[in-house]
Amino acid sequence: MSKRTPSEKPTIYLAASGDMRPAANETCWPAQALLEKALGRCLSKLGYSLKRAHPYKSAEKHGFISSQKEGLEVFRQIDPAAPLIIAEAVWQYSHHVLPGLTTHRGPILTLANWSGQWPGLVGMLNLNGSLTKAGIKYSTLWSEDFTDDFFLRHLKTWLEKGAIRHITSHTRSLDKVDVPARPARLGEELARELMEKKAIMGVFDEGCMGMYNA
């Protein structure tokens, strides 16, 4: 790997996991392109350069990683110690990038736009769940337009320290919550009934859309 000259900005790599359906990737690509452009501007202002870890595919009209095999090939070309952002403006299949992330040693940031157009935030949360289940350290961040103070402040922290810690003082462990008697009893009865009588439930498995977090 070539050394950076003093005048060059430090490089942050970006990967974008997508759908397995070509039509979905093509349709949603404009939103992803806008996200990456906005992120690139933010990083440039902070003194960094954003580089895609895989190219835009002209024949397919999108720049997403669209299969597990493609993801493996992409990660073979990424410096395992480099800072890496997984940016999502769309629904994505986590198994496209999860295998490569299991051995990535550099700081990992999952990032999504806050938009109702396509489920990028949901796609990011699916990847977050998969990373958590796999025991992979990562930070996560989101924004509506990538200009708000919350986003910029935390992005700067990740760039400088390699990790972000969000405020979680509003959360409590359930065993420390005084649950009222009636809902507590109902919950126990439902749990006992499900254990004894079973039920068919719509639960996804790990092979569905690459949801390792299932």
Rank of each mutant, 00 (worst) to 15 (best):
I136W: 06
S169H: 13
G135E: 03
E70F: 02
A87G: 05
I12A: 00
K133F: 09
H170G: 10
S67A: 00
L127H: 05
I108Q: 03
Q77M: 12
M20V: 04
L14H: 04
L35E: 04
F64G: 06
R4P: 08
T168K: 13
T171Q: 14
N213D: 11
N128L: 05
K69A: 09
P119E: 11
S169Q: 15
Y138L: 04
N113T: 13
I136D: 04
A31E: 09
A181W: 03
P180V: 07
S94W: 03
D148I: 00
Y13W: 11
F151L: 02
V179H: 04
L121G: 01
S7D: 14
A163Q: 11
G40F: 08
G207H: 12
Y56W: 15
R41H: 10
A199D: 09
Y48H: 15
S66W: 01
E196Y: 11
G129W: 00
K61F: 12
A38D: 02
G135H: 06
G71P: 07
V122M: 04
R4H: 06
S130D: 06
A23Y: 08
A23C: 09
S67R: 03
P10F: 06
L174T: 12
E188P: 00
L34S: 14
E144N: 08
H154D: 05
G210H: 02
A163C: 08
Q77A: 15
T147W: 03
L141T: 03
R165L: 09
D145M: 03
L98Y: 01
A112N: 01
G202M: 14
C42H: 08
G116K: 12
S49F: 09
L125D: 08
T171C: 09
T110Q: 01
F146I: 07
A214G: 11
L155Q: 03
